[in-house]
Design a protein around this nucleic acid. Sequence first.
DNA 1: CTGAGTTTGTCGCCTAGATGACAATTAGCC
DNA 2: GGCTAATTGTCATCTAGGCGACAAACTCAG
Lengths: 281, 281
Amino acid sequence: MTDLSMRVMMSSVTVGGRIAVASAMIQSATELIAGSATHLISVDDGDAAWSDAHANFLSSLLDAERQDLLTFARRRTLKPREYLFQAGDHSGDVYILAIGCVRQFQISPTGKETILWFNFPGEVFGLAELSSGIERQINAVANDASEVLCVRRTDFIQFLGKHPEAAMKAIGILSARVRAFGYVLAGLTLDNVETRIARLLMRFAAVSSQARCSVKVEQEEVCVNVRLRHQDIANLIGASRQTVTSTLLSLRRRDAIRMEGHHIHIMNPSHFQHLIEQSAS
Amino acid sequence: MTDLSMRVMMSSVTVGGRIAVASAMIQSATELIAGSATHLISVDDGDAAWSDAHANFLSSLLDAERQDLLTFARRRTLKPREYLFQAGDHSGDVYILAIGCVRQFQISPTGKETILWFNFPGEVFGLAELSSGIERQINAVANDASEVLCVRRTDFIQFLGKHPEAAMKAIGILSARVRAFGYVLAGLTLDNVETRIARLLMRFAAVSSQARCSVKVEQEEVCVNVRLRHQDIANLIGASRQTVTSTLLSLRRRDAIRMEGHHIHIMNPSHFQHLIEQSAS
DNA sequence: CTGAGTTTGTCGCCTAGATGACAATTAGCC
DNA sequence: GGCTAATTGTCATCTAGGCGACAAACTCAG
């Protein structure tokens, strides 16, 4: 497969009941082309939705489409922890993440944070408020140093109108997102904290870009290449920070995972998957 | 406002920070035109997403669009509890609910049901599996006697391609669905069972069709016109049946709600809303 | 290198809510 | 009307995991 054909490849393909996720990343800020995939991680079938939901919208576009979209785009650089938008804002932009990682979350009246989504390079977001000019309902903040492309809502709508194929892709991504949330929902009510954490890690491992993990990845081992504090994991799975800490510890003691600097490595995915299933009680 | 203009009215409008939901229903199976709204229920602003997510796709289409779509559609009648599709199916159809109520849910390996969504008349669903011809991930079953319009996936895609406006609407609905799930997610992790039930009732009250409630609705009182067993509520909010029973009982004893045959009436929405907020602890 | 600020690791206690096991109702059906 | 199956109401019991309160370990700016 040439690099060229890779450019427009969707990031997931179904292979006999399991899906092989080809993780892609934007290699150059100015080129914005999907890079080559180096690792294949198989995740649970139920998580097909998960990887489609994180699909690289930008690189799935045809060259002409992409070109057209980029003419509308303003580029914006974000420092870690810098807000892209906040609940209450009126900015009617649609965003595409070029580099980095953006966290989307809600804040409850009591100040608790619920993380809804992590955006990885190539993903579109901010579509939700696309309809009427309602104010933003959620918050988006850069998790790492990031670059986003900002497209005015009206321009984006116009773009989609002009390129039905692209609109179809947007619908596909959104649908996958809905399904992914469905799984999260079910998991939240049915699984215990350990299972929820384990599943989360598998998903992020499949979806986060592998390329940046400096440490040599052993044989089966996969890397969850997202900077996550225990508090973040807690906000993601709806548990308390303490519980996350001790669960993670227990997982480590059982050699299911390993810390490598600031990210987690899953020692043996298939074994880990197995562990998830039986722990589900 | 004439009946005619009503036909293409979107089902929600923003009114000073709160939204007034104009509940609409399909009055005649053969005509498929949105009926007139009789009640206005205001819900929490955060729930704007909720009503947009339940938007009446069919009646939001222009006449020409609707006509075009209907040429593709086969009609199917469902008895209560009859399956429309099941996890594992390969039916690549997109559905539009004409009459009745359809329940979408997942079954866990241990046999537990998680209800993801209730479809009300006019809603599109089954989009999720629209992308590649993956098999259905979830189950859909008629909650009441229902009628659905079935459109082959390829036809639907073609339809959207031909009518960018309609595609935009689909995107809008899907986005709202994503947002709505976000709220459910946050509620699930932050609120206790009483609050979750209360919020659920408010949402369903806003979204379910009012017209069928035979009993005279007192002054402020609103009707949650969906047939829900305690078990269903439990599956919807992720609680046990027993807890739902006793919580509902407690709500009744405090005159917050009232049973009317098989559905629940919320005695005083604003008071109820207040109750939700303070109970949230 | 240093000190403030953040993040992790550890305890013990305590409550919301799950679970199982019933009895009491109610609905649907012949 | 009468019978069965489904649904609701009630308890007593048990536990996962929340919460507060620390100490230890890291991070990073100056």
